[in-house]
Computed example of a mutant assay.
Amino acid sequence: MSLVACLPDANAVDLLGPAPDGVEIITWDGGAERPAGLARTEFWVPQVEDASSLDDAFEAMPNLKVVQLTSAGVEDVAGRVPDGVTLCDARGVHGTAVAELVLLMLLALQRRLPEFLAQQQQGRWESLGADDLRDKRVVIVGAGDLGEQTAVRLRSFGADPVFVAHSARDGVHATDELPDLLPDADAVVLTLPLTSSTEGMVDADFLAGMRDHAILVNVARGKIVDTDALLAELQSGRLRAGLDVVEPEPLPQGHPLWRAPNLVLTPHAAGNVAASGARAFALVREQLQRHVAGEQLINVVDGDY
């Protein structure tokens, strides 16, 4: 009998391409109408960041062995996977695209691009003094793939990236060292996962520790940052920010972040590039082949996420 792999929709089937030998592909979007073979599913790729009916999904797939996400973040799934089921993330898939957006935001704010665009709309020709990234110290909070990809690009602009993670190791500072690192940082980039210990980490005290006119870039998760505290700093003109993720999300109409000064805002679009689907399902295919062959999976999420 074939091994059953469940994908979220027909587009995912196209992105995966021909199934490995011995694999039957079915699709399920998590809805009430369940396809034949769902109970035999061993390998499941859920909808991106869709945890609304996760418990029902696990009940519908009693033979499940692997959950393969197409996103780097796993906070909605980690800790909810049944015993005996391996959870894997998409680490390495979206890092280059996300890092490009980090650089875009930093450069836009340093070179005052939003102000130049506003002048363009007004038909006003006025040179503004700006700055570059050369010799700037950028503290990257999160030393995984997203942080590493960001550091590579920062170095190409002559900047000095400094890594921070939960625990110190060679070349990486611990988060409890942040009070000493923030006053000397020209920018702080958040690329860390959302966990119980990182939720609300960037609060009023954290922001107060940043030097005047420094930049905060968040491409991690919105709940890591205290929105009200950041708004106060932006509105005072003391700090600048680039946000791809916010809290609440999606951002409601009329929310003060829409009109906050000193802010570049994008709608959780850092990884949304033309090749993102193909890259994600290249990983899915590799993982499925490994599972069929009984080989060790990569990107396994375990221990202290």
Rank of each mutant, 00 (worst) to 15 (best):
D55T: 15
D55S: 11
D56C: 03
A57G: 12
F58W: 11
E59I: 04
A60Y: 09
P62D: 11
N63T: 03
L64S: 08
L64H: 08
L64A: 00
K65D: 03
K65E: 04
Q68L: 06
L69V: 02
T70K: 00
T70M: 04
S71R: 03
S71T: 13
V74I: 07
E75V: 05
D76A: 14
D76M: 14
D76S: 12
A78H: 14
R80N: 04
V81K: 12
P82H: 11
P82C: 07
P82Q: 10
D83R: 13
D83Q: 15
D83C: 03
V85K: 09
V85I: 02
V85N: 13
T86S: 08
C88W: 08
D89V: 06
R91F: 02
G92N: 14
G92M: 11
V93M: 07
V93I: 14
T96A: 15
V102Q: 00
M105G: 05
L106A: 01
L107F: 02
A108K: 02
L109Y: 00
L109G: 00
R111T: 04
R111V: 07
P114C: 01
P114E: 06
E115D: 13
A118N: 08
Q121N: 13
G123E: 10
G123T: 05
W125R: 00
W125H: 09
E126P: 06
S127W: 14
G129K: 10
D132I: 06
R134F: 12
D135F: 15
K136T: 05
R137V: 15
R137H: 04
R137G: 02
I140Y: 03
I140Q: 00
V141W: 08
A143V: 01
A143H: 03
G144T: 03
D145R: 09
D145H: 15
G147R: 03
E148R: 12
Q149F: 11
Q149E: 15
V152Y: 12
V152M: 07
R153C: 00
L154R: 08
S156P: 04
F157T: 01
G158W: 14
G158I: 02
P161W: 00
V162Y: 04
V162T: 08
F163M: 14
V164H: 03
H166W: 07
S167W: 09
S167K: 15
A168Q: 09
R169D: 08
D170V: 09
H173W: 11
T175L: 10
D176A: 09
L178D: 01
L182G: 07
L182N: 07
